Simulated scan of single mutants.
Amino acid sequence: MLIDNHGRRVNYLRLAVTDRCNLRCFYCMPEHGNEWLQRKELMTYEEMLQICSVLVKMGVDKVRITGGEPFVRKGMMRFLSDLTKLPGLEQVSITTNGVLTAPLVPELKKIGIHSVNLSLDTLDRNRFFAITRRDVLPDVMHTLEALLQHELPVKLNTVVMDGKNVQDIKPLVELTKELPVSVRFIEEMPFNGSGDHNTHLPWDHFRILEAIREDFPGIQKVPDPANSTAYHYRIPGHKGNVGIIAAYTRSFCGSCNRLRLTPQGVLKTCLYGDGVLNVRDLMRAGTGEAVLQQTLTKAIGSREKDGWEAEKNAAAISSLSASMATIGG
């Protein structure tokens, strides 16, 4: 097992396969997009399989594929198929915006994808366009329908933004009455890639819960799974459930079991911290598996205690102006 310097088991990798995205959500990147990485800067699929294989041997048993938007990268389905076959890897999950995903759902089910997180900040087409700068809500809803039809576990990820989509909290919760989905409301984070987004967080997890309780007074707290980033709730009579993620408040750091790899192979031991090493460069330099494991073990053995400490340590080197697409959502 991988154990960090705070006694926490690390068994979950969030792997960003691309920084590119077909949406332009204002809380994630500038309207004109980012300066995209060149192909040679990205880890190849072979490199990603190699580092995943190494980490699985070290104790990682869950991998989540993120981006950018994973399905804008060509060859993704073959990579996912190969990844699910790694011995010892128990779960492969995906986070997607759903724009291109609907036709792929049957194959995702076939190759054994464990679950899908679908980004959905509103059910209103006009608000969707205002948030994402793209008029593609019907495509996202088709993906949701396909996921439910093929009985793939699905979580809907909603970033709660003051003045943008708070009126969507109620209708999104109402989805859980008839649909077996988990709707997860997420505190807004300051990663929009422009450096001018000052998150003063008027909607923290307490206020989100308060707003839900106003319309659903019977909402009940239920036990949270180990290492969960969300507070979990159920509403009697509803098929689905509700989660609230304190992504900016960072109240879950004490049980963090996650690592992140950016599209260019930078290992981050905390979302709010700087990268600690570049595994792509190590692999391209011919570093053997034994040395790679030693290097990874050393990095994981020097993790910050929590996101606040990581942010403080990173402040002298970088600012919280990175795009979530370049970090790995």
Rank of each mutant, 00 (worst) to 15 (best):
G237V: 11
V222M: 01
R213N: 09
R284A: 03
N227K: 10
L259D: 03
H232I: 02
P236V: 05
A226S: 14
R250S: 08
E214G: 03
G237R: 10
G273V: 10
G273Y: 06
T249F: 05
A211D: 03
L201W: 02
V266Y: 00
Q220K: 13
T229I: 13
N241T: 14
E214L: 11
G273M: 11
L277K: 02
N257F: 06
V266T: 01
E214V: 13
A246W: 04
V276E: 11
Y272H: 04
K221R: 14
T262Y: 04
Y272V: 00
P225V: 06
T262V: 07
L282P: 05
G273R: 12
R213L: 03
H200I: 11
E214I: 14
F206A: 09
F216K: 09
K239T: 13
S255M: 15
L261P: 03
V222I: 09
F206D: 07
Y231M: 15
A226K: 14
L261E: 12
T229F: 08
T262E: 03
M283D: 08
I212L: 12
A211F: 03
I219K: 07
G273T: 13
Q220E: 15
D281E: 14
S255E: 14
G240D: 03
A285Y: 03
L271D: 07
K268V: 05
Y233M: 07
K221P: 09
H238Q: 03
D274N: 14
K221I: 06
T229W: 06
M283G: 09
R207E: 13
R280E: 00
L277D: 04
K268E: 12
S251I: 10
L277C: 12
G243Q: 02
